[in-house]
């Protein structure tokens, strides 16, 4: 648990170093090919790019603590505000998709394990393996092609936030959420099945059966509780990973989320925004996993939070 702090520090150093390694001068890039050297030099000093690298780092960290993540080189918007507003858009899609997927996939995985090697099990595992092999950006494209272009049920372009118009917002969110949900179902079914299988062969399950408990009770009251732990950890990892990998989904559905922001800023060499995105996702990832670890004892009392 204490690992969270040094991890975030190392991540901050890594993010800063990474960005400094990028070839190309953002000042020259912003001013275009016709800029005079004096103009470039002047802009470099306003951006703080003429300081030494360690100095730039200290200034940067100092500003971070004041909530100042800098301004976008391209639009001049404050980075923290920009990144957080985009983060909200991505997070609602990811959280909703993983939540729905878990509700369906965890019981499905438990049942597959319980009926191991039966037709039900083969069907569930087969479906899960196929689902997780389909790349999300292709699945999204196919859903868009079918439900958007062929059937015309959902708009193909544009985006409306749920906060401005919740009805329209939900319609715009439907396909991205469905895409992620279908993909993550595959991952979670397999995880839930594997951890249930490990539990089912333990002696206490044999004991519970020997006591004459019904299969229902054995499965849901005894096996499920212990089997859910690893799946729960996995769900945390998925949430974090999706935040990093959602750029492709946002590209397919033209959603102005965090992933798209990151990719666009890489194209535009918008250093402060790239740093802000990377830092925020890394911190979110660490925090999500921290919360997952802290909640773990709720499902598995044998594990005591440190």
């Amino acid at each position: 648990m204490l690992m969270a702090v040094p991890t975030i520090v190392i991540v901050a150093v890594a993010v800063f170093t990474l960005i400094r390694l990028i070839p190309g001068d953002p000042a020259a890039l912003m001013l275009g090919d016709l800029a005079e050297p004096q103009q470039i030099a002047a802009l470099r000093s306003t951006l703080g790019l003429d300081q030494s690298i360690p100095m730039q780092f200290m200034i940067w960290v100092g500003h971070l603590f004041n909530g100042d993540f800098g301004k976008s080189i391209v639009t001049g918007e404050p980075v923290l505000h920009l990144v957080l507003s985009r983060f909200f858009i991505s997070a609602q899609i990811v959280v909703l998709a993983v939540f729905i997927a878990s509700i369906i996939a965890v019981p499905a995985g438990v049942i597959a394990a319980w009926k191991q090697n039966s037709l039900t099990d083969l069907a569930l595992v087969g479906t899960a393996t196929v689902l997780l092999s389909i790349p999300t950006f292709w699945l999204g494209l196919l859903l868009l092609l079918f439900f958007g272009l062929k059937l015309g049920w959902v708009p193909v372009l544009g985006y409306v936030s749920v906060t401005t118009d919740w009805k329209a917002g939900l319609i715009y969110m439907a396909l991205p959420v469905a895409t992620l949900f279908i993909h993550e179902m595959g991952v979670i079914i397999r995880m839930a099945r594997a951890s249930t299988l490990e539990v089912l062969r333990l002696d206490y399950i044999t004991h519970a059966r020997a006591k004459g408990l019904s299969e229902q009770a054995v499965l849901w009251r005894h096996a499920f509780k212990n089997a859910f732990g690893p799946t729960w950890t996995m769900i945390g990892l998925i949430l974090g990973n999706l935040l990093g990998g959602i750029a492709v989904i946002e590209t397919v559905f033209s959603i102005p989320g965090l992933g798209r922001l990151l990719v666009d800023s890489i194209f535009q060499r918008d250093y402060p925004v790239i740093q802000g995105c990377l830092l925020l996702v890394a911190v979110a990832y660490v925090l999500v996993n921290l919360v997952v670890d802290l909640l773990y004892p709720l499902f598995d009392p044998r594990v005591v939070a440190e």
């Binding site: 040094p6 190392i10 890594a14 960005i19 990151l262 990719v263 990377l278």
Partner: peptide, 18 residues
């Protein structure tokens, strides 16, 4: 572990910029 605290694709995106 700090590197593992970064989602893989995100680290790759950052490195690709370099």
């Amino acid at each position: 572990n700090a590197l593992l605290a970064f989602p893989g694709i995100l680290l790759a995106l950052g490195l690709l910029a370099v």
